[in-house]
Computed example of a mutant assay.
Amino acid sequence: MTEPARRTLLLAAAAAGFGAAGCTSDGGDHTDRGLGGGGEPGATASAGASSSDTPAPSRGPRGTPTIPPEPPLPAPSPWPLARTEVEPRAKGAAVRLLEALGTWPRGQQGPGPARERARNRGVPPAGAAHLVARAAPLLTPAPEATVRVIAAQYGGLAGDHASVLVPLRQWRRAADGSVEDGGATVDVRLTRAPSGWQVCDLHPSRPGRPLARPGALIRRTVTHDHIHLPPAADADIRAGHLHPAPLRALLTLAESYDIDVSVVHTGHPRNVFGTSRLSDHTRMRAFDVWAVNGRPVSDPTTPHALIDGFMRAAARAGAYRVGGPRLLGRGGEVFFTDRAHRDHLHMAFDSDE
């Protein structure tokens, strides 16, 4: 099965306004050079034809040049929202705004049309200007673009404040007519108002440059058939933004499971949400998983034995903290659960080696 088809099946399995004020922030849009350095905006890898691959115009019956048609962009596909979510309206507000900002037809590129798309999602003018400025990595100039959300998980829930982490893929039309394939992970901050959850800030991922000479652990991880990485997580690992212990654990787990990773380093809140404690993701010692063997963690039909078995296997692989939708055994110092971890698995390690 091709990767796009497999993604479509996973998203189908998951199915079952606004202002800039009052939003808490822990500096979640920090640029961390980590082990790889660079601090550049998230790298995009072209999946379409490069300019050198574009065929030369052919000749018609009377010698007139005929220009080959441009390859189409993937069609928009709204991410399915499940009513069984802990805070479905928070996820809905986050996901639908990013889909609107990162998708546009020909003639609708630029910040002006983006602000209009935000206003069409219920964002007031001042809030629209702020959010469009924050969404710059999704608004790289291009004649047209399409965003598809890969997953949406809670980065934290604390009273009337929430963080929703959204890994997404974006296809853009290049100047030569080819299709560029990239993406990002966005930490969407929301506040609860009388009218419902409102997006108040965006913190897009900003991975560094890929290492010139990545080690064997990195090469094996990013090319493994059973480890599926969204663009920002892939870029984080290639930049050295994940220490060896979690990389080795991923490879060990991939011997028995098919793993859909959601977040590694950038695009995650800097601190544990609602606290002043530095996150293990910021320390480059953690990764999150949104689906195991093609079964989303948030789907109530996903077998408990599958998810619980994966969590126990992660602990055996060296994780010192494992979070998920249920508390395993007596919990203790290793396993934990809370409202924010009912839709993903969190594996953290206490070693840099």
Results as ranks from 00 to 15, higher is better:
P325Q: 08
G331T: 07
D299Y: 05
Y320D: 15
V322C: 09
P303C: 07
G323Y: 02
F310K: 06
A315R: 14
R326P: 00
F335G: 01
D308L: 02
G331Q: 11
P300G: 09
G318N: 12
V297H: 07
T301H: 14
A319Y: 05
A317H: 10
R326H: 14
R321S: 13
R321I: 01
R316N: 11
A314Y: 00
F336P: 01
G324W: 01
L306K: 08
A315M: 04
H304Y: 12
S298P: 00
L327D: 09
R316H: 14
A314W: 00
A313V: 05
V334E: 03
A305S: 15
D308I: 04
E333Q: 14
M311A: 12
A313Q: 11
A317C: 13
G323H: 02
G329E: 06
A314I: 00
T301Y: 06
G323R: 03
R321L: 10
R316A: 15
A317W: 07
G331F: 12
G318F: 11
H304G: 13
T301L: 13
P300Y: 11
G323Q: 05
A319R: 08
P325I: 01
G329M: 06
G331L: 11
F335T: 01
P300A: 07
E333S: 15
P303R: 06
A314M: 04
R312D: 02
A319T: 10
T301I: 04
A317P: 05
T302E: 07
A313S: 15
G318P: 10
A315S: 10
G324V: 01
H304R: 15
R330Y: 09
R330T: 12
G309E: 01
D299M: 04
F310D: 02
P303H: 05
V322G: 05
D308R: 12
G318M: 10
R326Q: 13
A313L: 04
D308A: 13
F336D: 02
P300I: 07
I307G: 00
V322T: 05
L306F: 08
R330L: 10
R316L: 14
L306R: 09
A305Q: 14
L327P: 06
E333H: 13
G323V: 03
A314F: 00
F336T: 00
G331K: 09
F310E: 03
A319L: 12
G329N: 08
F336E: 01
T302C: 08
V322I: 14
E333W: 10
V322Q: 04
P300M: 08
A305V: 12
P325Y: 07
R321E: 12
V334Q: 05
V334C: 11
V322N: 05
D308C: 06
V334S: 02
P303S: 03
G332K: 08
T302S: 15
S298T: 09
L328H: 08
G318I: 01
L328W: 08
G332E: 10
D299E: 13
R321V: 03
L327G: 13
H304T: 15
H304L: 12
R330I: 01
R316W: 10
M311C: 13
A317V: 11
D299K: 04
G329R: 09
R316C: 09
G332A: 11
P303Q: 07
A314D: 00
G324A: 03
P300L: 07
F335L: 08
G309A: 04
R326D: 11
G329F: 09
L328E: 06
F336Q: 02
L306E: 10
A317I: 08
